[in-house]
Amino acid sequence: MARVSIDVGFCKGCELCIPFCPHDSLTMSRHLNEHGLPTVYFKEDHPCSGCRYCAVMCPEAAIEIFK
C-alpha cells in the first residue's frame, strides 16, 4: 500500500489534488501552515494505489508518494 506525504510548508490549499484522488483519500484540514494557509491532509485509514494523480496536479510540488 502506498502513502501520500504532503509538505504542509508548501501546500497552499488549492484543492486541485482532492477531486482527482480515485480513493477519496485526500481532504482539507483545519490546520493552517506557517504562511497562514489551509492545507490538505492524507487520510491514513484510506487506501492509496500510488497512481500519482495528486502529485501530477499539485502546482507546488508539495506531494511525495512512498510505497
Partner: peptide, 8 residues
C-alpha cells in the same frame, strides 16, 4: 520506503 514520486 521507496519513493514513487518526489519533486524534481
Amino acid at each position: 520506503m521507496q519513493a514513487l514520486y518526489s519533486a524534481p
